[in-house]
Structures are given as structure tokens and as C-alpha cells.
Design a protein around this nucleic acid. Sequence first.
DNA 1: GACTATTCCATGCATCTGCATTTAATTCCG
DNA 2: CGGAATTAAATGCAGATGCATGGAATAGTC
Lengths: 162, 162
Amino acid sequence: MKRKPSTEATGAWIRLMRVQSRVLAAVEQDLKKAGFPPLAWYDALLELSRAPSGELRPVELERQMLIPQYSTSRLIDRLVDEGLAVRRECKIDKRGQFIEITEAGRDLQKRMWAAYSAAIEKHIGSKLSDVDAAKLCALLDRLGCSCSQAQQLSAGEGASAR
Amino acid sequence: MKRKPSTEATGAWIRLMRVQSRVLAAVEQDLKKAGFPPLAWYDALLELSRAPSGELRPVELERQMLIPQYSTSRLIDRLVDEGLAVRRECKIDKRGQFIEITEAGRDLQKRMWAAYSAAIEKHIGSKLSDVDAAKLCALLDRLGCSCSQAQQLSAGEGASAR
DNA sequence: GACTATTCCATGCATCTGCATTTAATTCCG
DNA sequence: CGGAATTAAATGCAGATGCATGGAATAGTC
């Protein structure tokens, strides 16, 4: 129960931390330089745009994005402030609400995807063959336990987690 | 130059973000529950303890840990406040200083490694064979470009990046 | 030597985050 | 029904972070 990790396991840990940090920073940097907001905004807009009628309960969003409740609440504040989403009251449960993406929100999501996908290609795609990327996915899935849920790609997307 | 990433590359991106986030949170959580400070403290203490005479320039620390300058500065503040390190003036360059780890610092580093290594084993080692962990390392190295520098393990360690 | 550029580190300020708590509405259950 | 427990969302506050700037010392240039 208290076995020490092997050199390989420790190495994997270090690299997982370092590489993620580097790649994330690089991608965020690219987005920022293109004048876009943080990735978290993209993720939220994507989830909203994928939802049946372009709206979700904050709780749903929270579950999709794996971020704490208060974080979701404040992210929504910002999206609403920028006119990317609107709050709608929820008639069936007056505690709650619906968050609906606006046209401006959909538009931003699409424009961000152009820069975002280019960044992914630049920092991941160009460095790994598809076969190796798939191997990497498989190995990571063994650690993640459950990030493999859905997350299929249809028109243009990508998600993060933070 | 503007090619879209493959499904595999996008999948790898998503998993890299999600899995890292989960695993990091889990490990930090374990450390926290054991009553220890954040991982960044460990990393700094480790770097200091490894240094020839237990002291480093803030700039060195910054380079080792891959964190911004102001962040290093404040991390040092905290270590000093807690008596884990002391600032020493640098006679050869009066702009600078040396940060020296104290006995309390060395002690904390060692105690943290016990919990830290157990967490690595729990969240990585136990989920991946050594062979697979090595494969994961190799794939991640292709993305990271340069985290493979040194980082050998001698007595007990591990590093992160944030 | 005088002047400029660069390096090292700290810090003010605005924003962001985590944590705990609050308010309000809903559900559970005897 | 009526009160306890649960759930949805917001928020006050302390601490952390990013960014830009400041001051001090050194290095480079002519």
C-alpha cells in the first residue's frame, strides 16, 4: 500500500505535469495573441452551442466542464457581461436558470475554433503521427478513468478542462 | 500551415488537459489531506536541497521550476516566512542574493516525499506497467521538447512545473 | 569615465481563485 | 401539511496570480 513508485512512473508524472503546462501555455498564448479570451470561455461556448436549443443549466455546464460551482457562476457572469450569453429564468425550477448562447457567442466560438485548432495542430498534431497520438490517448485514458466519455468531434471543437 | 488537426491529435490534446488536471488535483489533494503545503513548495525545496551547498540564486530556481519571475519571488517570501529557507546576500553581485534551505526545509522536503511518492504510486504507478509508463514518457517527450533534461532520480524526489 | 542597455529582484494593482456561507426553492418523509 | 434535508446559484473575503513597472546593480560601448 505504501510501495514507492518506479522510476518510470515518476518520470511519467513529471512529464505529464511539465508537458501539459508547456503545451497549455503555448496554446493559450496563441489564442491570446490572436486577441481571444481564455480557453475556458471557448469550452463554455462550445458546450452551450452543442446543447439542443443552445441553452443549459449552470449545473450541466459545471458537470461538463469539470470546474467548481462558483467558478461556473462567475464564468457565466463574464459571458453575460460580454453579451455572449443571456440568463433565462427557469419556469420549472425557480432556483435555477437557463443560460442561452447568443449569436455573438456562437460567432465567437466559431472564430476561436479557427485559431484553437491551428494551435492544436501546431503544438500536438505536427509533432505526433496519428498512430502515436492514438497511443498517447490510450495511455492517458488509463490514468484518467473517465475522460473518454462522449467528447466526439462533429463540426469543429475541442475541449480542455480548466 | 493552417491544416486542421486530426481527430487523434485533438483527442490527445483533450486528454492531456483533462488527465493532467485530474491527476494533479488528486495528488495535491492527498498532500493537502496529509497536512502539507502545495507542490510548488516541494519543488522549490527539492531544487534547493539538490544544489551544491543548499543554496541557489532566485534566477536559477526560476529556470529550474519554469515559473515566472514574480512567482518565484513570492514563493521565496513564503518559504522564508515559514523558516524553510533564508535569504543570504550575494557578495559578488549586489543585485542578487542566495536562497539557502534550512534544516527545517530539508526535513519538510523529506517528509513530503513520503506522501508525494505514495500519491504518485497511487495515481500513476498502480495504473500503468513500467513498460507503459516508459512509452508514455517517450510520447510526452516528443511534445515537450525539453523536459527530458536531467531530472534523474537519486534518493527521493519528483518535480512538477507549476 | 559617462551613457545606455541589460539583468536581478520586489511590488502595486487589478483580476482570479478557493473556501465557506447565504439565500431561495425543492424534495423528502413521517 | 410541516419541518428537515437537499439542491441551485450567488457572494464576501482572503489569498494567489498575472502584468507592468520600479529601483538597484552590473555589463557593454565608445
